[in-house]
Design a protein around this nucleic acid. Sequence first.
DNA 1: TTAGCCCCGCCTTTACGGAA
DNA 2: TTCCGTAAAGGCGGGGCTAA
Length: 657
Amino acid sequence: MALPAESGRRGDFLDTGGHAVTENISFNDFACLGAFGMILQAKAELKAQAVPSEPSIPTAEASPRLPLERSSEHADKEKAEEGSATPERHGNAHQLSRQKCMAAAAQPQFQEDVRRAASQIWDQPDQIIVNQLCEMWSLANVWADHAAQLTAQSFDEHPVSRSYACSTAQLPLARQHLPIAPRALPSAKFSRRRCTATPQGTVSQNVQHSSRLAEKLWSLFIEIGVAGSLWAQFQGLSETLQLAFRESKLDSWKQLPISSLSRAVSTANRWTTWCLQSGVLPWKPTPLEVGLWLRSLRRRGPTAPRGALTVLRFLQLHLGAVFHAELDEVARHGVIEPGHEEKPATPMTISMWVQLEQVLADTSSGDAVKMLCATWIFLLVGCVRFAHIQRSSLTQCSETGLEFFCNRGKARVRGVQAPFRWSMPRHGITGIDLYQVWSSIVLKAFGELTQLTFILPDFSPSRVTLDKVRGLNAAAMPLWKFVRMSRTLFRMLGLDCHHKGRSTALSYMSRRVLPTLADMSNFKPRELLAVGAWVDNKRPSMQAISWRLAMPLRYSDKKLLVARQLKSELVIAAQLAFNAWRTRYGDAAPTWDDLLPLWPNRALAQRRVVANNPRRISDVRLDDPDSSPSAESAPSVGASVAWLLPTSIFSRSTLAT
DNA sequence: TTAGCCCCGCCTTTACGGAA
DNA sequence: TTCCGTAAAGGCGGGGCTAA
């Protein structure tokens, strides 16, 4: 079989006998191949599970290499990383992959699936095509990895100098668990407090607020009246249809976040106030007048004009207000000031990570403190946003990992924010069982986990400081409170977190850790994407790569498993590096840069992950929907427990936003 | 393929009313 | 008087999309 000569171009695929399979396979066709290729791979693995030499993580050894032209420097580096990978093993892995594909293709139902999928591309797919699809996928997957990696390297503007001087022989026999020294909290008055549950909902308050704001927007629509672009159509409707139009508008606005609605209303108020003071007709402005208003906002901050222009576009779209936002005369005033530099949150230090886990493991820590610490660790090892954690339900628990369902993601597809699943390792850098600690508190307070649609419950009573918390509310803690409570906690622990010169507790401190470690581990582009879907689209190469690589990830049946194993690998790597640091330098707190020379190679970390995963998740996964956990069945550390939630949970609406 | 814009949810800060 | 709860608004991150 031949491969397309150049990435992204159309090309012919030839079978081994030199016959053209088809002409001009486009990238879209290739995407389709990827989709059912994943199906194929999943089915093949089910059949091939008995093969003992198959590693749990897709390592370099499991992927046959293509004869792509590569620089010797790169080849040397990769060789060093892969360690024990040999041509023989590559060949064996390739052969195994082919065998698995053929085994899966022999199943009648699967052949039918592939035939049906193939018919979407070719009019009359025959058995040859079906068979060739199997083989094409195994090579295409590897080809995509290499093409993406080479492209990424060619666009890498600021290559990081990495050192892999620390061989496995130099590392001490890394302990599976870091020592968890008893750590007395500075303020003992709240440390032993246990929490009780207090039912409380916030849904109605949010709905009422949304309704109020939506009504205000409708009032603006009426106020704009004939000056608006939608008014003529609206007036042409019958009274019944005008009511229907109003209802549809209100409904659509209520679906938007409250912050967006309130921003639209307040910006409209500021605009009309300025118009009043400046003698401008607010709903019949000239482009010059709108531009001058945007320019006047510069004193509020470097991005204030851009934010205002965004809202003007929103008002144009939703209310029909005419702000001429599409004209350059207006838009050029709504830009960020040149020279403005973004300053993202600094990743949490490894010392802080360890310290939070030590507090979590300390039996003298109170429930509120433990819940805060657990949330920080969840954010870190899960590599998710705080808002997503607070919209997530635990759906599966195994010996080595947890799987969650977030009922609303960030990405929008035609205006709809689709839900998504995410996974994380069950154990932290110190080896602590995160599920055990978290679930014991939640189960004690609420009696069960299946109805919980958030990770961190709000504290009760309201309006109290951390030391006076008595219980947990059946509602998600809002971000502002998490930040405030965390600042208090960090202050008590003597942790110093600053951003832009201010003491703070940015949730992104946690979320940026694993992507940083993935970079230190020299992850491949697709692996980076799997860890946190962290895409730098300001680099065009990465945008293209993210599209290309997201496709097979999206369709992969094992993406959660792969993501969790990659996250586990990073946690283990950090653990090994930290142990090496302590062996050499004692208790001195290292930065991530300090750990770079001690960073273990990937093969070592992967072996450790495999050693820690005695059974694959597919082995312990249960299909019994009644096996949901309860307070009585809370698993203990090391227990072989796995369960699934009933599917009905996925259709449940969110508690609070 | 690439550069760049659009859009909007999320993050963070600030200000203020009011409860403790 | 202190500090908590909340709203408002600026700022940031990143997916979606398209013209060149």
